[in-house]
């Protein structure tokens, strides 16, 4: 299930205005994504670790989340050193281990972890609803924001419908296998899920119209803008500037 283990908390980061955090996370991610030099990436990793620390998140849980992405990154470590070309550093039987590939894989690892940790520290520390409202107030396209919020709301309902269908086929003796009957059944399950989701969407829209919905959403969220937010913004700007300085520092 989609629970939000990081959303509740009372750290310095949790208390910041969500809008500032969302903006900072976006700008920071872009900056980290465009740099390649190791000193710059090192600083980014340090800054991200600091943010995780400030948010007071359980290291085990953060590590578990990073593991998911790093499983994907591990694929680069397998493929890139063999295919990226450049100087050969080691001969492993018939395989050439190339320096350029190792460097690229290391850059990708540092970048993705730094960005992910910053996103966890800054945006996973607010509830989904708050994130939606922050995006709304930052003038993200309204349709995008409500698509996000409604998806979040109804993904549970759709999951329940999915479980219902699974139960229905199980109690009638269905067991998965490799037969045409099995594939056909799964096709029906998925088809039925789409049909139910669309019928659900229709009813939700009807209910919204019954309550006077005419295409415009109103947000109730109010965020306090204390001085803390400007200190945070200044620190984030300095960090981003530092990372860019280390990247573009003349040799």
């Amino acid at each position: 299930m989609l629970d939000e283990p990081f959303a509740s908390g009372n750290s310095v980061i949790h208390r910041l205005d969500p809008r500032f955090r969302v903006m900072a996370a976006i700008v920071y991610s872009f900056v980290v994504a465009i740099v390649y030099r190791f000193p710059a990436l090192g600083l980014a990793l340090g800054a991200s670790l600091t943010m995780i620390g400030l948010a007071g998140l359980a290291p085990g849980r953060v590590f578990y989340r990073l593991l998911l992405v790093n499983g994907f990154v591990a694929l680069f470590w397998v493929i890139l050193p063999l295919t990226a070309g450049g100087e050969i550093v080691y001969q492993l039987g018939p395989l050439d281990i190339q320096k350029r590939g190792i460097v690229l894989a290391a850059q990708i690892t540092l970048k993705s972890n730094a960005i992910l940790m910053a996103l966890i520290a800054l945006t996973a520390t607010m509830s989904f609803a708050t994130l939606g409202h922050a995006m709304n107030q930052l003038k993200f396209p309204e349709k995008l924001v409500y698509l996000l919020l409604l998806t979040y709301r109804y993904i549970f309902v759709i999951e329940q419908e999915y479980k219902k269908i699974l139960r229905a086929i199980k109690i009638r003796g269905f067991s998965p296998g490799t037969s045409l009957h099995c594939y056909k059944t799964y096709a029906y399950v998925i088809g039925m899920l789409f049909v139910r989701a669309s019928a659900r969407a229709e009813r939700v829209y009807q209910a919204m119209r019954c309550r006077g919905f005419a295409g415009k959403f109103y947000s109730l969220a109010e965020f306090d803008s204390s001085r803390r937010n400007y200190v945070f913004t200044a620190l984030m700007t300095l960090t981003a500037a530092g990372i860019l300085y280390l990247e573009y520092l003349p040799k």
Partner: peptide, 17 residues
């Protein structure tokens, strides 16, 4: 009927509209 994340937002949806 309930589509908003929180109860208060959902109840306020009609009056706001």
């Amino acid at each position: 009927q309930l589509f908003s994340p929180t109860v208060l937002e959902d109840v306020a949806f009609g009056p706001l509209n």
